[in-house]
Design a protein around this nucleic acid. Structure first.
Length: 104
DNA sequence: CTAATGACCATTA
DNA sequence: ATAATGGCCATTA
């Protein structure tokens, strides 16, 4: 574990059930807007159930990867009420969660 | 030290 | 709609 991973997890653990955010949004949230790819790498190592990394999706509305397989990721999200069709969110803007907005 | 890798992104064809 | 491309950056070999 290192500082970067800690910061990523710190942002991810705040995502509420039934909502999603993007790798890029996590990057912004930790103050480094261009590290989306590295965020994915950090989440790939996650094993903790405390970190809801299945709620992080791609900015194009596709579900993205998962260390237990993207099938499992879709399954969990569907179970939380996020609507997905062929690995693509029906409407990313509806389910997207923005921390700043939430705090306002 | 350098090179390769990957749960990404935006642009272009 | 798909596919290719270049960029990005932390981590790992």
């Amino acid at each position: 574990m290192n500082n970067f991973v800690q910061r990523v997890y710190g942002a991810v653990e705040k995502i509420p059930r039934g909502r999603v955010t993007t790798y890029k949004d996590i990057a912004k949230a930790i103050g480094s807007p261009r590290v989306a790819r590295a965020v994915g790498n950090a989440l790939n190592k996650n094993n903790s159930l405390e970190i809801p990394c299945h709620r992080v999706v791609r900015s194009d509305g596709r579900v993205g990867g998962y260390n237990k397989g993207s099938r499992a990721k879709v399954k969990i999200l569907l179970n939380e009420g996020v609507k997905i069709n062929n690995g693509h969110l029906l409407n990313l803007t509806i389910f997207r969660w923005n921390q700043k907005k939430f705090l306002k």
